[in-house]
Amino acid sequence: MIVLSPESLNEVYARHLDWYPAIQNPQSAPEHIEGLADIMFQFDLILLDSYGVLCRGSTPIEGAPEAIQQLRKNNVSFCVVSNDTLTNRSVAAEKYRTRGFDFTSNEVLTSLDITEQYLSSLESSGNIGVIAPLDHPSNHLLEGMVRLNGCNGEIPDGVDTLLFLTGAGWTAKMQENMVNSANGRQFDLIVGNPDIGAPHGDHVTATPGYFLADLVEQTIQKAKPTLFGKPDRSIFSMAIEQHQITDPSKVLMVGDTLYTDILGGNAMGFKTLLLQCGVYQNENILEVISRTGISPHYIAPAL
Rank of each mutant, 00 (worst) to 15 (best):
V130M: 10
A132S: 09
P133T: 14
D135N: 15
H136S: 12
H136E: 12
H136C: 13
N139Y: 11
H140I: 08
H140G: 12
E143F: 06
E143T: 00
G144V: 00
G144A: 04
M145P: 01
V146K: 01
V146A: 12
R147S: 13
G150F: 03
E154R: 15
D157H: 07
G158Y: 02
D160G: 04
L163G: 04
L163W: 02
F164S: 07
T166W: 06
W170K: 05
W170L: 14
W170E: 08
W170V: 12
T171N: 01
K173G: 11
Q175M: 14
E176V: 07
N177T: 04
N180S: 13
S181E: 05
A182T: 00
N183Y: 14
N183R: 13
G184V: 01
Q186S: 09
D188W: 06
L189K: 00
I190C: 12
G192E: 06
G192I: 02
P194Y: 01
P194W: 03
D195W: 03
D195Q: 07
G197D: 04
G197A: 09
G197K: 01
G197Y: 02
A198T: 10
P199L: 10
P199K: 08
P199D: 10
H200S: 15
G201D: 10
G201V: 09
V204N: 01
V204L: 01
V204S: 00
V204I: 10
V204T: 04
T205G: 08
T207W: 07
T207H: 03
T207I: 14
P208Q: 02
G209D: 01
Y210S: 09
F211C: 09
A213V: 01
D214I: 08
D214M: 14
L215R: 04
L215N: 06
L215P: 01
E217F: 08
Q221V: 02
Q221H: 00
K222S: 12
A223S: 11
K224F: 11
T226H: 08
T226S: 10
K230P: 00
D232N: 06
D232V: 03
D232W: 00
R233C: 08
S234A: 09
I235F: 04
F236C: 02
S237R: 03
M238D: 04
A239T: 03
I240L: 03
E241S: 11
Q242R: 12
H243L: 12
I245Y: 03
P248R: 02
P248W: 01
P248H: 02
K250T: 15
K250F: 07
K250P: 05
V251M: 05
L252Q: 04
M253G: 02
T257L: 12
L258R: 06
L258V: 13
T260C: 14
T260G: 09
T260F: 13
I262H: 12
L263F: 13
